[in-house]
């Protein structure tokens, strides 16, 4: 069964959310990765990077603020 990896990149400056996402992608060949971020800028940066790496990307706004980006492959 594919595992779900969670990355908490909230509050990190550019480009650290993308770096943390890259680290997670390198450890995971398939499955789901959840990336938590707090700005739309990070949502777009992480999404663009993950799409370029061949992952399907969606995101949702969290009730407590911030966003959860879901990467699937």
């Amino acid at each position: 069964m594919a595992e779900t990896v969670e990355v908490d990149a909230r509050g990190l400056s550019c480009p650290q959310p993308v770096i943390e996402t890259k680290k997670a992608i390198e450890k995971t060949s398939s499955g789901e990765i959840h990336v938590l971020v707090d700005t739309m800028t990070s949502v777009m940066n992480v999404s663009r990077f993950a799409k370029n790496q061949g992952w399907k990307v969606s995101y949702e706004e969290l009730p407590e603020g911030g966003f959860k980006i879901v990467l699937r492959k």
């Binding site: 909230r10 509050g11 990190l12 400056s13 480009p15 650290q16 770096i19």
Partner: peptide, 10 residues
């Protein structure tokens, strides 16, 4: 940055 530099979270 590749070696883990961070000023921490805001």
């Amino acid at each position: 940055l590749w070696h883990g530099f961070s000023l921490g979270r805001n």
